[in-house]
Design a protein around this nucleic acid. Structure first.
Lengths: 236, 236
DNA sequence: TTGCCTAATATTGTATACAATCAATGGTCC
DNA sequence: GGACCATTGATTGTATACAATATTAGGCAA
């Protein structure tokens, strides 16, 4: 929302399913819906006043991006990433994100730097605030920086890949994160953007790799959290 | 099919839709279904003896991996990638595939080399054969080499990304390819595997980048091809 | 009480029916 | 004759109904 919408003609299956998909997606990414929570077709349909047909389409879409797990004859659940999956997500980010920085650097313009600075400022503002909703917004803003970099490349496919990786990262952090990563991540975001602005592209890549390492290092791969209430999470 | 199946619990939406999705996917990747071909829900359902409900699920899945375009109230069509999309596909491959080689090198075992050699041999065999079906199999085998490298990494997310990129590349080649790329691509595949086996990982990466460049250079971004017959393409 | 088996309940998988939208054909007016 | 408009036809979007499967509750026996 905050960054420019560069996507060229999003493949909008249909209006109703798209909306439901977006709402549930946001709820998962902002960690209002805990991993493992069951997403009953009836319940979701009731909340949005649509039939199961539409809900199924939304859930299928979410399953494709790895945010929801669909078990045959059992239903859909908010994905519950395994430790192995978590490691694969961050391995893939380490593989892709330096490339995104290099590609973004090639397309970088003044306005992009301004947008990134605005995102960092917003992130900073949320860090100083208290309360759960501010914390959630901060989580999202933290991911938005990475997505904004992908958007600068102008490559819609890369953007979609990053969209998925950031969303799934958020899920992993919800499960295994011990401290709020954002506080340390925020300073690192600053360094990365600084390096990018100064043209020190390889420095920016190195910083990005370290940043991803730090996020992963903050995970505690033992604890598990309880599942949440469906209605409260979606309708807030 | 030919390479080891390392995917951990594929998110199988449902059996019926999965099958239809696979058949149509293969038809698109092997270029039996030309870009732009309309995929009517009634027609497809009739061919598979299932209701539109199941077909819709399959088409939606295909639309998520970019092989099918769904237009609101108009229906589904085999994707017709624009020049810009084609460039983005290859830009993304250049970004990801060197990383896959490095990651694959870390997991490389004797049996992997044997599997890759077997794929190259199969590719070679098909090159010597004539006829349209051999040509199609060759196209698929050509992509399988890249997919096998992704499989060696053991990273399911990377595999899925590559799956999508290879499938869409095939679509682009169907539209814009002028010569059969495989003949030149085959030798390059050999060089890449040789370098990998000798431990010259950075050489392998360089060769891979050149290989992707060559594939893209073989495209003629002016010509367009005619659409194909749905029934013949799916039931052969 | 515990374990297992059976039946009832609920949820998903699929098909069909109806509503909404778009494409095409035919007619009329200029 | 050509362009514009309306009506018809076909196709998709959505809801509902039915079938298949899984979960749960209850009862019986050890």
């Amino acid at each position: 929302m905050t960054s420019a919408n560069l996507a060229p003609a999003e493949n909008a299956i249909d209006t109703g399913a798209q909306h439901i998909r977006d709402v549930i997606r946001e709820a998962i990414v902002e960690r209002r819906l805990a991993p493992g929570t069951k997403l009953s077709e009836n319940d979701v349909g009731g909340l949005f006043n649509v039939s199961r047909t539409v809900v199924r389409a939304a859930l299928q879409a979410l399953s494709y991006e790895g945010l929801v797990t669909v078990e045959k004859n059992r239903g859909a659940f908010v994905a519950y990433p395994s430790v192995a999956e978590a490691q694969q997500i961050f391995a893939t980010r380490r593989l892709i994100e330096p490339g995104i920085i290099r590609e973004a650097a090639r397309h970088l313009q003044r306005r992009h730097i301004k947008e990134l600075r605005a995102l960092l400022a917003e992130e900073e503002r949320l860090t100083s605030e208290h309360g759960q909703s501010a914390r959630r917004a901060e989580i999202k803003a933290s991911g938005d920086v990475h997505l904004a970099l992908a958007a600068i490349t102008g490559n819609a496919i890369l953007q979609r890949f990053m969209d998925e990786l950031i969303a799934r990262s958020s899920l992993v952090i919800a499960l295994y994160g011990q401290s709020v990563v954002s506080s340390c991540g925020h300073a690192e975001h600053h360094q990365i953007i600084d390096a990018l602005e100064n043209g020190d592209i390889e420095d920016a890549c190195t910083l990005m790799l370290k940043h991803i390492d730090h996020i992963e290092a903050d995970l505690d791969l033992r604890t598990t959290k309880r599942d949440s209430n469906l209605k409260d999470a979606l309708l807030m």
